Amino acid sequence: MQLHIRTLVKQDYLSVFDAFDERLFRKLSPPYPRLKLLRFDGSYPGDVVEVELQAGFKSYRWTSLITERVVTDTEAYFVDEGLEVPSPLRRWRHKHLVAKEGAGAVIHDIIEYSTGSKTLDLLLYPLMLVQFGSRKPVYKKMFN
């Protein structure tokens, strides 16, 4: 299943892309489930980001590996892929793309995920849309 969320911001694409650091990661964390950041190496290939999702009395580990990073004259992106993802997820790939748009930029969150069940993927889609859609106001506040 793929989810693609676009957010138009007023800052130039390289300034926005360069701001994808631990501080922004913490600001983008959803209110639920709560995230406890265990490790944040950065956004270069080989870097690892590890969090603990805290949902009530239960917690889940989520570990992602940065597998790609590209910067061109018109766009910049990095990709994180899940090494350890919470059930029911089996596969996770998130491309953080920032593209030039006039004097500003468009931030693209392109998420591919799979539970192994098309039905469950579809049922999770609205939740994913809400979770990642909640990033839009944070992006706008940070980059407008």
Rank of each mutant, 00 (worst) to 15 (best):
residue 2 Q to F: 05
residue 5 I to A: 02
residue 6 R to T: 03
residue 7 T to I: 03
residue 8 L to K: 14
residue 9 V to Y: 06
residue 13 Y to A: 11
residue 14 L to C: 03
residue 16 V to Q: 02
residue 17 F to E: 07
residue 19 A to E: 15
residue 23 R to W: 02
residue 25 F to M: 13
residue 34 R to S: 03
residue 36 K to M: 00
residue 36 K to E: 13
residue 37 L to Q: 04
residue 39 R to E: 08
residue 40 F to W: 10
residue 40 F to G: 02
residue 44 Y to V: 06
residue 44 Y to H: 13
residue 47 D to K: 01
residue 49 V to C: 12
residue 50 E to K: 11
residue 54 Q to H: 10
residue 56 G to K: 07
residue 56 G to F: 07
residue 59 S to G: 05
residue 59 S to A: 03
residue 59 S to Y: 00
residue 60 Y to K: 04
residue 61 R to W: 00
residue 62 W to N: 12
residue 62 W to Y: 08
residue 67 T to G: 05
residue 67 T to L: 04
residue 68 E to Y: 05
residue 69 R to Y: 08
residue 70 V to E: 14
residue 71 V to Q: 11
residue 71 V to R: 07
residue 72 T to K: 10
residue 75 E to G: 06
residue 76 A to P: 14
residue 83 L to W: 03
residue 86 P to K: 01
residue 88 P to G: 10
residue 89 L to C: 11
residue 90 R to V: 05
residue 91 R to F: 08
residue 92 W to T: 06
residue 94 H to A: 11
residue 94 H to R: 13
residue 94 H to E: 13
residue 95 K to N: 07
residue 97 L to V: 02
residue 97 L to Y: 00
residue 101 E to F: 02
residue 107 I to N: 08
residue 107 I to R: 05
residue 109 D to R: 09
residue 112 E to G: 14
residue 112 E to K: 08
residue 113 Y to W: 09
residue 113 Y to M: 07
residue 116 G to D: 07
residue 117 S to W: 06
residue 121 D to R: 11
residue 121 D to E: 09
residue 121 D to T: 09
residue 125 Y to C: 01
residue 128 M to K: 09
residue 130 V to A: 11
residue 134 S to Y: 01
residue 134 S to P: 00
residue 136 K to W: 00
residue 136 K to E: 12
residue 138 V to Q: 10
residue 139 Y to F: 15
residue 140 K to F: 02
residue 141 K to L: 02
residue 141 K to V: 01
residue 142 M to T: 15
